[in-house]
Design a protein around this nucleic acid. Structure first.
Lengths: 134, 134
DNA sequence: ATAGCTGCAAAATGTTTGCGCGAAA
DNA sequence: TTTCGCGCAAACATTTTGCAGCTAT
């Protein structure tokens, strides 16, 4: 795996993120350090990094744009339907179902996408206040 | 909720499917009974049915087209990376983690998307045979 | 009459790709 | 000298939408 200056910058930038930026958000961040970079290059390198398992692509159900995640440990995502924020959640015991699934169905799991959709705490509080204000 | 002839036909057609058709696949099926229907109408009615919780939209990670599902009971999806088939899998005890999640994070889960990516049995067998044939 | 539904075609959107050029191994 | 990566812009694919007419209430 070769790392051009752009590929390295994109990877480093994503690693510095605690949230899960879209390609365009990353493009905006990266351009601050390398103004000549193009959006196509960001997409191309993100795809390369995904294919080599360096990062993960995440397509939140109900949102159009893909998001990217430098965290490689197994974890689930919480997606707030109000603010669209994506939170991480560790679910240590989840991969234990793979064996059971294979025994029953013959399906060999390689990777899991576990998404909980709902409302995060701060949005829940906001909604509650709006209601009492009426 | 009012049901036009097209909306009803789209819903009935989807209910008759054991797999998880895309909008275009449904369009093809529906046109056999109603050749004048348009693809836009299929999309519009699918959105209405999703919004009213009559059906579920499912966007398999790594596939571009959305798929639709008339089954309303909670279930997970197995997506084969070889043939792209989407299988259903019942996971009865899954919703029990919601309380735990809310206690820890304050996130209130309303709906779960659980996808296992891997290789289904028939594709696994195919791959195995190809390898021994070499 | 009024609200909702439809076909059609155009638009919108996120992502990919072809090309010619330049940099790196 | 050959492979890879780049910027740019055009292409692509799925889905949405504006419009004008129609259907049912």
């Amino acid at each position: 795996m070769r790392y051009s200056s752009r590929r390295q910058l994109i990877l480093d930038t994503l690693r510095s993120c605690t949230n899960h930026p879209t390609a365009e958000e990353l493009y905006t961040m990266v351009r601050k350090q390398m103004p000549s970079i193009s959006l196509g290059t960001v997409y191309r390198n993100l795809n390369v990094l995904v294919d080599s398992d360096e990062i993960r692509k995440f397509e939140p159900p109900g949102q159009i744009k893909a998001r990217y995640d430098a965290k490689r440990e197994e974890h689930a995502h919480l997606v707030c339907r109000e603010c669209n924020t994506v939170y991480d959640l560790n679910l240590p015991e989840v991969s234990s179902i793979d064996e059971e699934v294979e025994k029953i169905t013959g399906f060999c799991t390689e990777q899991r996408d576990i998404v909980l959709n709902g409302v995060c705490r701060s949005c829940r509080d906001l909604l509650r206040n709006q209601r009492t204000a009426l």
